[in-house]
Design a protein around this nucleic acid. Structure first.
Length: 474
RNA sequence: CGCGGGAUAGAGCAGCCUGGUAGCUCGUUUGGCUCAUAACCAAAAGGUCGUUGGUUCAAAUCCAACUCCCGCAACCA
């Protein structure tokens, strides 16, 4: 039994949970459950990122206190996480007192690598933020949202000296000691690392009031990323406690869009603190809607709660873990979702459970206890986060059982009175289906439990009165 | 010349590293079965593997050039 620590990116609470957040949670949860299946001791962190200007100004607009607004939204995410049946062990808010105090201690520990400097760039009053040179060029120097020309502005910032860590980070990435998955992102990150300048890690209080104060400089507030990234270790109690039992993390799950922060800023912070780097950073792709990027401006956002409502949480987990590829962007459409539900969950698996249970019941077959070793292929796919491929393997087993039923024709054996053979045949299928349940556990925990309930009983097997995945549901 | 990925049956993808009858899932058509949620099983049709050229006895696979699509490029899962 080994200690496993799994982390998810903490979402920024300035909005409702969306499909993308679900990907982080589902992948991490599946891995966590897989590790438990292997007997590991799993710590599994989730949380919310609550500081920063956007939260502050939205709260102001809504006429609620910022603390209250953050709390409400944080609760929304927690509800969402629970709805997804995520088996987390720790939930952290960046507004937690303990986290804030620990961040300040982290800052102090990093101080040999921090220096005060000036940030110089194009700034828009209306947006209250700096913009990139590229954006400046594209908009011809005028903010499209506010119709005002950008101004050249210089402000005091503290910087983290990236040069102190660049070589070590690159070495860790190249050697896979700090492994970036999928592999094709590695090159991207290494290139990016070369060009990364020192990282600004604070803002003047006048620009950013809702955040963690910089120790020793009341006019400065920590940049949200420093505060947010630290959560992975403050939740373990760092630096107040020794965290070596669970740190370094076994796997951190992040969206591809925030990979840079987790492969450059984050390791720089860790190295500055003298801590080891996480073993794996797993970056997943984005969910596309009808092959298009989901975005508020396009108005094509799908509410995950609506999707969950449609066929239930197990179907939701099923679709996103199997048909949305772990590493690349994949498409969500209602048609595909329905198709997967009907063909695979209802027809292949649900119907198999129903038909086998009914046959067992008619022939007075008792359930059995399952004792199996997970096969090598499954272990290897799961261990390398190839969840959709692992799913394909499981489905082959399901199809095999369906095929076996047709080949061995239990109904004919029953008619001919060959009860010995019938018994053997059905018992074998029950065994195989129970093992499918075992393999499904990390993905579809409720379904796995139901299979266990039906076929793992000491009594005569009984078909459930209501199919597991009824068709013609709304 | 910023970095990277991709182009294979109506759709979504695998195969390419380590050249040698082009494969999977869905959809379509036909047949079988009756235990089951009109579910299950089998078979068939459907592709000159983005374009052009090269290497080779042999190229989806190796090489070169080109065309088109897409991701990333400091706060967006």
């Amino acid at each position: 039994m080994s200690k496993v620590y799994i982390c998810t990116a903490i979402p920024y609470v300035n909005g409702d949970p969306h499909i993308g957040h679900a990907m982080d949670y589902l992948l991490a949860d599946t891995f966590a459950r897989f590790c438990r299946l292997n007997g590991d001791d799993v710590k599994f962190q989730v949380g919310t990122d609550e500081h920063g200007n956007k939260v502050f100004s939205t709260a102001l607009k809504k006429g609620v206190s910022v603390a209250e607004y953050a709390k409400q939204n944080s609760q929304k995410f927690l509800d969402f996480i629970q709805k997804l049946n995520i088996s987390y062990t720790d939930f952290i808010r960046t507004t937690d007192e303990g986290h804030v105090a620990r961040c300040q201690k982290i800052w102090q520990k990093l101080s040999p690598h921090i220096y005060a400097g000036n940030y110089d760039g194009w700034y828009c009053d209306g947006c209250e933020g700096f913009i990139t040179q590229k954006e400046y060029d594209e908009n011809h120097g005028i903010c499209p949202d506010h119709q005002k020309p950008y101004q050249r502005l210089t402000e005091k910032n503290y910087y983290l000296r990236i040069a102190d860590f660049r070589a070590d980070i690159a070495k860790a990435i190249e050697s896979d000691n700090f492994r970036i998955l999928p592999e094709f992102r590695k090159q991207e990150v290494l290139k990016l690392l070369e060009d990364t300048p020192d990282i600004s890690i604070s803002r003047p209080r006048g620009k950013l009031s809702w955040g963690v104060s910089v120790p020793g400089d009341d006019d400065q507030v920590m940049y949200v990323w420093l505060d947010a990234l630290s959560n992975y270790i403050t939740v373990l109690g760092y630096p107040d406690r020794d965290i070596s039992d669970f740190w370094p993390a076994t796997a951190q799950f992040v969206g591809k869009d925030i990979l840079r922060f987790h492969t450059i800023t984050w390791p720089a912070i860790l190295l500055g603190l003298g801590l080891p780097l996480p073993e794996n950073i797993v970056s997943h792709g984005h969910v596309l809607l009808n092959s298009k990027k989901m975005s508020k401006s396009l108005g094509n956002v799908v509410d995950p709660l609506e999707v969950i409502e449609h066929h239930g949480i197990e179907a939701f987990r099923y679709y996103f873990l199997r048909h949305i590829d772990t590493f690349t962007d994949s498409d969500f459409t209602w048609e595909k979702f329905d198709e997967a539900y009907n063909n695979e969950l209802a027809n292949d698996l649900g119907n198999l459970i129903q038909r086998l249970a009914t046959m067992c019941h008619k022939n007075d077959i008792h359930g059995q206890e399952l004792n199996i070793e997970l096969d090598e292929q499954y272990l290897s796919l799961m261990g390398s986060y190839e969840f959709s491929k692992a799913f394909d393997q499981i489905w082959l087993k399901i199809q095999q059982i369906n095929k076996n039923i047709d080949v061995s024709k239990p109904w004919e054996l029953a008619k001919s009175g060959d009860s010995e053979k019938l018994n053997t045949v059905l018992q074998e299928m029950v065994h195989n289906l129970l093992s499918v349940g075992k393999y499904l556990e990390p993905f579809l925990p409720d379904t796995a439990a139901k299979i266990e309930d039906i076929f793992g009983t000491q009594e005569t097997i009984t078909a459930p009165s209501e199919p597991l995945f009824p068709k013609n549901r709304q």
